[in-house]
């Protein structure tokens, strides 16, 4: 048949527990990541993403245990990001049971790290996570800039040029998060997603801003993403993963419904 679009629930994990905030502040503790992972697995999620936002270095190791316990129960692809800075970090996550790792700040600070990681583990398991905000004004040509540190720190780096550079360095997939929209439930930044998806040869995952099922449809149909990531709409039970996939299928997107 054909490759299906993926729906990827994302769990923000802090100190081994699930949290999800609005635009990265006001975090609300809402559960055990392994239990959530099992529920998403049963609901037909196409892949699962853990984003480790643990700040304290004392608790950095909690994520390895979460990943290992998840991999023991869920036979679905698992991507883990947050704080991935060294080849040793990647190796530990893969050994714990992650299939892919996503690299964020470390890719901005040192693009060659992406090349080193891709060389060592293969492009297929290196996702580069790009957090950006629209910086162009009204009437200007669209321009997006990379922000790090949870969206607080501007870098002056153009997001589209950075995306192309990351693919050259060996990223096997790009996770594009609009920091303006994250947690706002206003929909993905479609122009950003499409601009990058049309420029690069690797798959693009749309992220940041989902509030309705139409937003998921738009991410694939209009944004040309091959996967859509969402957190709160699933995590707080607004919609189930199954509802999302059936809705997308009804709107003409090839989905896996088995």
């Amino acid at each position: 048949m054909t490759l299906k679009a993926r729906v990827i629930p994302c769990l923000d994990v802090k100190d081994g527990r699930v949290v999800k905030g609005v635009s990265f502040v006001n975090l609300v503790d809402a559960g055990d990541p392994v239990e959530s992972a099992k529920a998403y697995d049963a609901a037909g999620a196409d892949e699962l993403c853990f984003l480790d936002i643990t700040a304290s270095s004392d608790n950095r190791d909690t994520i390895f245990d979460v990943v290992a316990r998840t991999a023991d129960h869920c036979f679905m692809p698992l991507t883990v990001g947050g704080g991935v800075r060294t080849v040793a970090d990647i190796r530990k996550l893969l050994l714990a049971g992650a299939d892919k790792v996503s690299i964020n700040s470390a890719a901005v600070a040192n693009p060659d790290f992406v090349a080193e990681a891709a060389d060592k583990f293969g492009n297929q398991c290196i996702v580069v996570s790009i957090d950006s905000k629209k910086v162009s004004g009204e009437g200007e040509e669209d321009r997006w800039e990379i922000f790090t540190h949870g969206g607080r720190k501007p870098t002056g780096i153009d997001a589209v040029a950075f995306a192309e550079k990351m693919v050259e360095r060996g990223a096997g997939e790009l996770l594009l998060t609009s920091m303006d929209r994250d947690g706002q439930k206003v929909g993905y930044d479609i122009a950003l997603t499409r601009t990058i998806a049309d420029r690069v040869c690797v798959p693009v995952i749309a992220s940041g801003g989902v509030g309705t099922l139409d937003h998921l449809v738009e991410g694939v149909r209009d944004g040309h993403a091959t996967a859509v990531l969402a957190a709160s709409i699933f995590h707080f039970g607004t919609y189930t993963v199954g509802e999302a996939k059936r809705y997308m299928a009804k709107h003409g997107i090839a989905m896996r419904l088995d």
Partner: peptide, 12 residues
């Protein structure tokens, strides 16, 4: 040409 490399995801 719209198909991406790698192929990542579910297929029959």
């Amino acid at each position: 040409p719209a198909l991406k490399i790698p192929q990542i995801g579910w297929n029959t």
